[in-house]
Simulated assay, not measured.
Amino acid sequence: MSKSAPKTTKHTRFEDAQAFVYGTAMCALAMMMLKTLGFITGQTAGLALLISYVIEAPFGVVFFVVNLPFYWFGYKRMGLKFVGKTLICVALISVFAETFPSFISFETLNPTFGAIMIGFMTASGLMAIIRHGGSLGGIGIMALYIQDALGFKAGYVQLAFDAVLFAVAAFILPLDLVAYSLLGAVVANLVIAINHRRDRYIAT
Rank of each mutant, 00 (worst) to 15 (best):
L87D: 03
R197K: 14
L190P: 12
T108A: 15
R13S: 15
V186N: 09
S181C: 06
A188F: 06
M1Q: 13
A57V: 11
A167P: 07
G42N: 03
T41C: 08
G137K: 00
G38N: 06
F113W: 13
A25V: 10
Q147I: 05
A193F: 13
A30K: 02
Q158E: 13
P58G: 04
I93G: 00
I129D: 00
K7I: 10
K3S: 15
A143M: 04
V65I: 10
L136Q: 02
I40Q: 03
V178S: 03
L68W: 05
A28V: 01
F166T: 02
L34I: 13
A30L: 04
A160F: 08
N189H: 09
T122Y: 07
K35W: 12
R131C: 08
K85H: 10
T99C: 10
G84I: 04
L159N: 14
A143D: 01
G79Q: 02
A30I: 01
G42S: 07
F96L: 01
D176Q: 13
P69A: 03
L182G: 07
R77K: 12
L177A: 11
F39N: 01
G84A: 04
K81E: 00
V186D: 06
S2V: 14
G125N: 02
I141V: 11
V95E: 00
T112I: 14
G133W: 03
R200W: 12
Y22K: 13
I130E: 09
A160P: 09
I146K: 09
G151V: 04
F171V: 12
I116T: 05
S181M: 06
S181E: 04
G60H: 02
I40M: 08
S94K: 00
V187E: 03
D162W: 06
V90C: 00
K153G: 12
N110K: 10
V66K: 02
F70V: 01
G23N: 01
T44Q: 11
G74Q: 00
M26S: 08
A170Y: 13
F100I: 07
A167R: 09
Y53N: 10
I55M: 14
A149K: 15
A30G: 05
G125F: 02
A203F: 15
T204A: 15
T44D: 08
H196L: 08
L175V: 12
I118G: 01
E98M: 10
S124N: 11
T8H: 15
V90I: 02
T122M: 08
L87R: 07
A167G: 10
I141G: 06
I55S: 12
T41D: 10
G38A: 04
A45T: 06
T204S: 15
I116C: 04
F82T: 00
K7D: 13
I130Q: 10
A123E: 03
K7N: 11
I139A: 01
V83E: 00
M142C: 06
Y22N: 14
T122D: 08
S102Q: 14
I118H: 01
R198D: 14
A170P: 10
V54S: 11
